[in-house]
């Protein structure tokens, strides 16, 4: 009744002399593999089984049924599918639990509620900004350049031929209609995140001191390693002199 073939899932311990360094060092007398007793016959003498074996008959019988000497499960041959299902189900449920546990441990790294709340839209009054000037405001920790462009700057921005631009975009797509004089861009170089300096560079726009990217008066990339134009943040004109960023 006891099938002695090893079970696939339990194979690892019984195969060959898997002695390792720790065994050699610390357990020279213990073999790395484990050998099991041969199955006992039914009704083995009770006396072999220690002091409490006076419960005559019961102990050896139990020992036999439990198959002390055998590690393979008796049922393995009879119901392999049921056992396998149990092992797979347990493993699967444990895996689902582990995955579900990892989620909060990772999700905690996302911005917390106060950071998100602090990233709410801001309003900026444009009246103090004279023509030709620009200001820097912060929204969500990012510097936003708000430039009050001169006529000359607007003209320069509009008359460039798009085909000459690395990231072609008309000036009209970068300002709000009817508010051509206001350029609002996120002042972070699209190359590697430095802050470009306003009113510098050969196009009177922005110049990034880190790696020499040059942007024009519309914040478009003209030369240097930056791949794209300075992004325009989401904003709307609340009135002619006030914008809401975000």
């Amino acid at each position: 009744m006891h099938a002695c073939e090893p079970i696939a899932g339990l194979r690892s311990y019984g195969k060959g002399a898997n002695r390792t360094i720790l065994d050699c060092l610390f357990r020279p007398d213990w073999p790395g593999k484990v050998v099991f007793l041969p199955p006992r016959g039914p009704r083995a003498p009770a006396a072999t089984f220690g002091r409490d074996s006076s419960v005559s008959g019961a102990v050896p019988l139990a020992a036999d049924e439990k198959g002390l000497g055998i590690v393979t499960t008796a049922s393995s041959a009879d119901h392999p599918t049921r056992r396998d299902f149990l092992f797979v189900a347990t493993g699967a449920v444990a895996a689902v639990g582990a995955a579900a546990t990892v989620w909060p441990l990772v999700a905690q790294m996302n911005p917390d509620a106060s950071t998100i709340a602090a990233g709410a839209p801001i309003e900026v009054d444009l009246t103090p900004i004279a023509e030709g000037q620009d200001i820097k405001v912060f929204w969500r920790g990012k510097p936003i350049y708000i430039s009050h462009r001169t006529k000359k700057q607007i003209e320069e921005a509009q008359k460039v031929s798009l085909s000459s631009l690395p990231d072609p975009q008309p000036d009209s797509a970068r300002v709000k209609a009817g508010h051509d004089q206001w350029l609002v861009v996120i002042g972070i170089c699209t190359h590697l995140g430095c802050i470009p300096i306003a009113h510098e560079g050969s196009y009177d726009g922005f110049f990034c001191p880190c790696h020499g990217s040059v942007y024009d008066t519309s914040g478009r990339i003209r030369s240097g390693p930056a791949p794209t134009n300075l992004p325009v943040p989401p904003y709307t004109f609340v009135s002619d002199t006030k914008i809401q960023i975000g």
Partner: peptide
Amino acid sequence: LLYFTKKKVWANAH
């Protein structure tokens, strides 16, 4: 599940 798995694994070792 672990209880039954444990029982299965230990069925013949006790």
